[in-house]
């Protein structure tokens, strides 16, 4: 299947999804997940010190520690 066809189909699916979404005025609260605790307390610690270098190593192109996104694509 060629790229254009996939794009057209994806757009169709999204447009149909949008139409359905547009008909919903109000979501019932029951849809939200209920948990006893809903906020993070002070003192939480969880960091991944090696992540930054792994992310930059995997980036296709970096400059001045920034990731270079494809230009003019957005």
């Amino acid at each position: 299947m060629d790229k254009t066809k996939i794009e057209q189909q994806a757009k169709k699916i999204m447009d149909e999804f949008l139409l359905v979404l547009g008909k919903i005025d109000q979501l019932p609260y029951e849809l939200g997940t209920e948990r006893p605790s809903s906020m993070r307390k002070d003192g939480a610690t969880q960091t991944d010190n090696g992540f930054s270098s792994r992310m930059l190593e995997n980036a296709p192109k970096i400059k001045d520690n920034c990731i270079v996104a494809e230009k003019k694509k957005w």
């Binding site: 610690t45 969880q46 960091t47 991944d48 930054s52 001045d64």
Partner: peptide
Amino acid sequence: CCPIAADALPNTIVCPRCTGQPGSKPMLPN
């Protein structure tokens, strides 16, 4: 839990959560 630091070197205060890595989930809101 990534720290907030205005003057940090680019892309050094990041983790799988705040860069939306596949499979990562948010922690509860601060």
